[in-house]
Design a protein around this nucleic acid. Structure first.
Lengths: 251, 251
DNA sequence: TCCTACCGTCTACACCGTATGTCTACAGTG
DNA sequence: CACTGTAGACATACGGTGTAGACGGTAGGA
């Protein structure tokens, strides 16, 4: 009998909402999925080894069979999210492909907003080459995309940096502006801006309506316009399709 | 006598390296400075209320006199660092002023690299208006800088977002590429890239020398060139000095 | 059949954030 | 002077945390 004590046999679709995984086999994938679920629901701080084990309906120590320690577990969660970012390195239109990647990255971040701190933070703790390979895959793929398009590897790296730098910044910006109290109708109150002294923050307060109607998608597109235009003019590869203007996805 | 038991009276410049603050008065500033010291030395994870108290040579609970809880303490640390960022809202040359701010932000991040996760992450947990006011000061100041230069408030906000989005992204990029093993002379080994399978990451591995000689300062300047050029062409304010080309600080 | 490998469990330790209570020193009041 | 109120520092305690180490049971290979 590998099940926990009797009192939890039947009544345990535990407080984490996950249905305790019953008697199913525990794999790394299952562990990471459960961890991701907890983080999505309650944030990174809410993820503890014990709570994760509770969600898996197993002993806390089981997690250590699939991750050497908690830091590695968090890396794993970041990796599973980032691994969903697919790059097509064979796309002949590199500008369009980068746009697609950017949009997908944004939508990934918006569906897992509480994972974003991990995405931007974990790499700071680990030297590049020691990072989980799923994390490096998009980098390598974009490098091949760009070198295939005619860029030199250093130029490709430059473009990659510019794109993801911009992307990370944009995501952080956008998530910061999520609404305080969505039910409130008045913009000032909804954003909590009324708490700021008027004499010290007049402009910020006056921007309530603008802040309240922030549109991340088109903000991203405009940023990409500028960025990609700047890149194509400074670094034109030999064999290349002309860069397209902003073209938000139709769907 | 407010001092702790005798055994620590003379021999306690404790393991945190800070000289226990002796009998000095504990203020919020002192607490935050000690916390910053610990984070600078050993990272955010190493900061615990107990260790902070040990550094202050006091009982753990004093910290709660100056911060309601640990999250607020971290916010305070982020604030003290960010408050060092001075914006001159009266500068007539807004482009030059933004460049200066960007450079100062970068140098701030480089002198406190382990605080950067807090800088980019804490705001995600707190709605804009609830953030410590020291955090909002640079925002308001940049808004007045730009509106004084002739931009409308929404345009000013747009520029602020673009600048700090780019800035955050750049900082994260730059810190990620810090060296694994600085003593090693071979670039591949120094970056740990030899651990990557050649057949799966050929381009990344080939970029070892480029990665090893990353120059964040000029990378930042080039990014600012593109960004500010893009902003001035799309959003030209009425009364404005012409934008200058990249001009790294002479000192 | 035994051996090895792994998987899940149990126990235990040192440490964590913080609610609550107690002690002390001092300010103001009569 | 005694008395009270108050604020700061200290002490205790509770429930939780990450994880080292040892133990049993089960599966597969020799």
């Amino acid at each position: 009998m590998t099940r926990p004590p009797a009192d939890s046999i039947d009544a345990n679709d535990d407080a984490d909402g996950t249905v305790g995984n019953g008697g199913g086999k525990i794999t790394r994938k299952v562990v990471l999925a459960a961890a991701l679920g907890i983080i999505d629901r309650d944030g990174v701080d809410a993820l503890s080894m014990r709570r994760l084990a509770r969600a898996l309906d197993r002993d806390p120590m089981i997690v250590y069979r699939h991750a050497p320690n908690k830091a590695a577990l968090l890396d794993g969660v970041a990796e599973t999210v980032l691994a969903q970012l697919k790059v097509d390195p064979t796309d002949p239109d590199w500008v369009a492909q980068l746009r697609t990647v950017a949009r997908e990255y944004r939508s990934l971040a918006l569906t897992h907003p509480r994972v974003v701190p991990l995405l931007v933070t974990r790499p700071l703790a680990t030297p590049l080459a020691l990072r989980p390979q799923g994390t490096l895959r998009p980098l390598e793929d974009i490098l091949t995309l760009l070198t295939t398009a005619g860029f030199s590897p250093p130029a490709a790296l430059h473009i990659y940096r510019a794109l993801f730098g911009f992307l990370h910044g944009h995501i952080l910006d956008e998530l910061q502006e999520l609404i305080d109290n969505p039910a409130e109708t008045d913009d000032l109150l909804r954003l909590g801006l009324h708490r700021l002294p008027i004499d010290q923050f007049p402009l910020l307060r006056s921007l309530a309506p603008v802040l309240a109607t922030y549109d991340g998608a088109t903000e991203l597109e405009r940023g990409l316009d500028i960025l990609l235009a700047g890149l194509t003019t400074t670094l034109n590869p030999p064999n290349q399709t002309p860069p397209r203007e902003a073209q938000p996805p139709t769907g």
